Amino acid sequence: MSDPTTRALRLLSLLQTHRSWPGRELRERLGVSDRTLRRDIDRLRELGYEVHARPGVDGGYQLAAGTRLPPLLLDDDEAVAIAVGLRVAAVQGLGEHTALSALVKLEQMLPAHLRRRVSALQEYAVAAGGRGMSVDPDLIAELALACRDHERVRFAYVSGLDVESTRNVEPHTLVSNGPRWYLVCWDVDRAGWRTFRLDRMSRLLRTGARFTARELPVEDATEMVFVSDTEASYPLEAVIHLDQPLEETRRAFGVWARGATANDSGGSDWPVGGPSLADLLYGPGWIPLDVAWTVSATPEVTDLLARFARRLTDALPPPSEPPSPS
């Protein structure tokens, strides 16, 4: 690496990724002598980068905070992350004018393909709360672009039961919920709305086939994620038998009742489930007080529900006596 400018930029990139570098390792990375390394360090200092040198056998170099902010070297993913963060800050009013000013400076330096990624991620990736788990940023970016361009995609997917299948979908929105990212989409082969976890996807292919965007069955895509994963199976499951027609059940609970079916008595059977008792009881809590219902479940789940019902009854105060007539 003979060009001094190229070498200095490479040295700066290395110093920005580690707290401290041994001199020997830097020389090996750059393919230079100790004397050349010292000259390149001095060149960075002249540009405003404060580089500390530690002498001795175990000595090395460390990039420290200086008295002014020098230029930063960012890779593609870092630049996209900063740009998206600045857009969120501007929209939410967190230092709006400063965020917009910084965003303009950054985006005018981004190449066209990175500006497309920033725009797609901002518009089609929704945070529903919590921190996301580790997902390939290129996968998120490609799916966001497919959402924006209304382009069908195919991918391999492993369900919660470890069953692998190939999915052909029309992507709508990306949602991060807690530690996971989800794709909300229309499953072409199954003719219905589905959610897929990105950490279970592989072999993504953008097909180039365009589609007309469909209207979501809910106002907010995050509701689709909150319902359940595609083809989910839960440790605790039950079926609620509601004394109301299926149409009324679907109208009352929307996408939450997408698995409900009509029964022979003219009512509806609504499957519910979850990894815990609290999740299992979430759905029944929304049943109107004037609607009668019963529950069917395995003996283990039935016993768990009965024990909770007894605990709830024991925790309630005795009913108050009606006032006596005067």
Rank of each mutant, 00 (worst) to 15 (best):
M1D: 05
D3M: 13
D3K: 15
P4E: 06
P4L: 06
T6D: 13
R7D: 01
A8W: 12
A8T: 15
L11G: 02
Q16Y: 15
H18N: 15
H18I: 05
S20F: 15
S20C: 14
W21A: 05
P22D: 00
G23V: 06
R29S: 09
R29Q: 15
G31I: 07
G31M: 10
D40R: 09
I41Y: 08
L47P: 01
D58W: 09
Y61C: 03
Q62W: 11
A65E: 12
L69W: 12
L72V: 03
L74Q: 05
D76T: 01
G85V: 00
R87S: 01
G93H: 08
A102V: 04
V104S: 14
M109V: 09
R116E: 14
L121A: 01
A125R: 15
A127L: 09
G130A: 05
S134H: 14
D136I: 09
D136K: 14
P137Y: 12
L139G: 04
A141W: 12
R148D: 00
R154L: 01
R154H: 08
A156K: 14
Y157W: 14
F196N: 02
R200L: 00
L204G: 01
A213K: 12
R214T: 00
E215H: 11
P217K: 12
T222E: 11
M224W: 10
V225E: 01
V225T: 02
F226C: 02
T230Q: 13
E231R: 14
Y234I: 01
P235F: 09
V239R: 14
H241F: 02
P245N: 07
R251D: 02
A257M: 10
G259M: 08
G274M: 06
L281N: 03
Y282M: 10
G283E: 10
W286A: 06
D290R: 13
D290G: 07
D290A: 11
A292N: 13
T294N: 07
S296P: 06
A297M: 08
A309G: 07
P323I: 11
P325H: 09
